[in-house]
Design a protein around this nucleic acid. Structure first.
Length: 443
RNA sequence: CGGGGCAUAGCGCAGCCUGGUAGCGCAUCUGGUUUGGGACCAGAGGGUCGCAAGUUCGAAUCUUGCUGCCCCGACCA
């Protein structure tokens, strides 16, 4: 993409409404624009990251055996009356009346709808296990939206719903999502720790929050440092096999948010391994049994000929919120420093002197990189060097290639690694190969 | 939902106390000089001062109501 033809409205000054760093940087880097309290338009750069994050989430859900569908944003109030949540949900639910005076709502979640879909088709235990998921916009009319996309009213969420014939099998489904979550966040370069969670109004008895560690996180967390060195399950994980050893490993170490914190249990952890940190919740998994299936009559025939309500679980990931968490975890004074797996572009190509001898080198590199599948943002604008460097540092592409008259005298370009600030002079061919390898290395 | 604050050009702000027909920096446009870390000079365009009433000869400025947004707290993916 040529920057001269792109839409990248960078702000030089800090918008006053943005208090925390991720919000500020997303506005400054031209990723989002607020349209209303807690409601954002996704500008081209922000959308690219959102789509990459979404893709990783989808791939790992599918790897774990979940099947993707797409449910609507607008739902009927009747469905929610069946579960009893229409009245219970309160003002957080955005209620809408259509032209026929029918009561509708903008979905804050989809348990009722997925249960309705399930009960419409599935009759037998032979069709189980089943895990259906979608990635869709949700709306919760928060009293006080804040922190940009970290706590918006409209947000993109992945929600998966598992259906099993009994609790033991439901637990296996839960374990599959647990492992999928470990992989999902790790692929984004995030350290996300599963922590025992309060099951809250949704009900149930088995629940974990996945918390990303970031110094600017909203909640305080306590953990055993040993948990940080646990291995992430590989791509070759057998999701049909028994995963309980993985779950046991991750849940046997102390890790809790301040609400669930048990000071005595924490004190039992080796003093040298006690860690107090801050974190951001990016995922939440629940087993809630037959709460909805019972209320809504979602039953299957068992092998013994009886009918039982299905055991369900739900598994959420805040996709749009993850962008905030990613920036909180990956930035410095100059701007964002994207991990390779979610960066809007892999490399920024800076032409120091458009209209001069740098043009053919830049054009060739641009073409070769794109052909090799490396995503390039080519700064071909005729502006000052300082402005180009500052823009690139702000938007945080992992690599920058600087092509200037100075380096070209010795046939070299500069390759800068954004996260470390490390610079090296290379031939254009060497830079090209290095970038192709870097893209290949992260899949 | 309790407490506090803000609303003036695309962005950041001054002017308001003490009413007199709107200003600064950045950005934008034109010309020139510059050119390896957010340049300089000269000029130009751009604002129903959030909305509505009221007071007044006259309101960005005073009064009342409304709306929007932000911050702290309680609550949450």
């Amino acid at each position: 993409m040529r920057l001269s033809r792109y839409f990248l409205p960078i702000l030089k000054e800090n918008p006053k409404e943005a208090e925390i760093v991720s919000h500020r940087l997303m506005l400054r880097a031209g990723m989002i624009r607020q349209q209303s309290a807690g409601i954002y338009a996704w500008l081209p750069l922000g959308l690219r990251v959102l789509e990459k994050v979404q893709k990783i989430v989808e791939e790992e859900q599918k790897r774990a055996g979940a099947v993707q569908l797409l449910m609507p944003t607008v739902q009927s109030a009747d469905l929610w009356r069946e579960s009893g949540r229409y009245d219970a949900y309160g003002k957080e639910m955005l209620r809408i009346t259509d032209r026929h005076e029918r009561e509708m709502l903008f979905g804050p979640t989809n348990e009722e709808m997925i249960t309705d879909i399930f009960r419409g088709y599935v009759r037998s235990y032979k069709d189980l296990p089943l895990n259906l998921f979608h990635v869709q916009w949700k709306f919760r009319d928060e009293v006080r939206p804040r922190f940009g996309v970290m706590r918006g009213r409209e947000f993109l969420m992945k929600d998966a719903y598992s259906f099993d014939v009994d609790q033991e099998k439901a637990r296996a489904a839960y374990n599959r999502m647990f492992v999928a979550y470990l992989r999902t966040f790790a692929r984004m370069g995030l350290t996300a720790i599963p922590m025992k969670a309060d099951t809250g109004p949704i009900g149930g008895d088995l629940s974990h929050e996945f918390i990303v560690l970031a110094s600017t996180g909203e909640s305080e967390v306590f953990l055993d440092k040993d948990i940080l060195s646990l291995p992430i399950p590989g791509e070759d994980t057998d999701f049909d096999g028994d995963l309980s050893h993985v779950i046991d490993a991750w849940t046997s170490h102390y890790a809790a948010t301040d609400e669930m914190h048990d000071a005595d249990a924490f004190a039992a952890v080796d003093a040298g391994k006690q860690e107090q940190a801050r974190g951001i919740e990016v995922g939440h998994i629940f087993y809630f049994g037959t709460k909805y299936s019972e209320a809504m009559g979602a039953k299957v025939a068992t092998g013994e000929g009886s009918e039982v309500p299905v055991h369900m679980g739900s598994y959420g990931i805040g996709v749009s919120r993850l962008l905030g968490a990613l920036i909180e975890a990956n930035h410095d004074d100059d701007g964002i420093a994207w991990p390779m797996s979610v960066t809007p572009f892999h490399v920024g190509l800076i032409n120091m002197k458009p209209g001069a001898e740098t043009d053919p080198v830049c054009d060739a590199l641009y073409k070769q990189l794109e052909e090799a599948g490396v995503e390039v943002l080519y700064d071909d604008r005729d502006t000052r060097a300082g402005a180009k460097f500052a823009s690139m540092d702000l938007i945080g592409l992992p690599y920058q290639v600087v092509v200037g008259p100075r380096g070209l005298k010795s046939g070299e370009v500069e390759l800068k690694t954004r996260a470390t600030g490390e610079k090296q002079m290379l031939s254009p061919e060497a830079a090209l190969n290095l970038l192709i390898e870097a893209v290949k290395a992260q899949g």
